[in-house]
Simulated assay, not measured.
Amino acid sequence: MKGKIHVYTGNGKGKTTAAIGLTIRAVGAGFKVFFGQFVKGEEYSEIKALKKLDNVVVKQYGRDCFIRNEPAEEDIMVARQGLAEMSDILQSGDYQLVVMDEANIAVYYKLFSLEELIEVLQNRADGVEVVITGRMAEEGLIKIADLVTSMEEVKHYYQQGIQARIGIEK
Rank of each mutant, 00 (worst) to 15 (best):
V57K: 14
V99T: 04
L97G: 00
E102Q: 07
V130S: 09
K48G: 05
F112L: 13
M136N: 12
A106K: 10
E74A: 13
L50R: 11
F38V: 08
K48I: 06
I47S: 09
I67S: 01
F38S: 02
I89A: 07
Q96G: 08
T133L: 03
L90I: 01
K52Y: 08
L114V: 12
L111V: 03
K51N: 06
N123D: 15
L114D: 12
S113T: 15
K52M: 05
V33I: 05
V107T: 15
T133Y: 02
L50A: 07
Y95H: 15
G82H: 00
Q60V: 02
Y95M: 01
G134F: 03
E116T: 04
D75P: 08
G30E: 00
M86I: 03
Q60L: 06
V130F: 00
G41Y: 13
F35P: 02
L83A: 12
K32G: 05
G127V: 04
S87H: 14
P71W: 02
A72P: 01
E70K: 06
V57F: 12
E74K: 13
V128A: 06
G30R: 03
D54V: 01
V78D: 02
Q122T: 07
I76Y: 00
L117K: 01
I47K: 09
A125N: 12
V56T: 01
V120S: 03
L83Q: 13
Q37H: 15
D64H: 11
L53D: 06
E70S: 07
G36K: 07
I105Q: 06
E73N: 04
S92W: 10
L90A: 08
F31E: 10
Y108D: 11
A125Q: 09
Y109M: 07
I76N: 04
T133F: 08
A125V: 04
G30M: 00
G93M: 15
L53I: 01
E74P: 09
F38N: 00
L117A: 15
N55W: 05
E129N: 13
R124I: 02
G93L: 14
G93H: 06
M86E: 05
K51M: 05
G127Q: 00
K110S: 10
L114I: 14
L53P: 06
R124F: 01
E102M: 12
Q81Y: 15
A125H: 15
G134W: 03
I67V: 10
A49R: 12
L114G: 11
T133H: 05
Y44L: 11
E116P: 15
F112I: 08
K110R: 13
M77I: 11
G28I: 04
R68I: 12
N69H: 13
I67Q: 02
E116G: 09
K32P: 12
Q60D: 04
R124E: 07
Q91K: 13
Q37C: 01
G28W: 14
D101A: 07
P71Q: 05
D64N: 10
V57I: 05
R68D: 11
G93E: 02
Y108I: 09
V57N: 14
A72N: 07
G82E: 03
E46C: 00
M86Q: 04
E46Q: 06
A49E: 04
M136F: 05
A84V: 11
V131D: 02
E115I: 12
G82T: 05
S87L: 12
C65G: 08
Q91A: 10
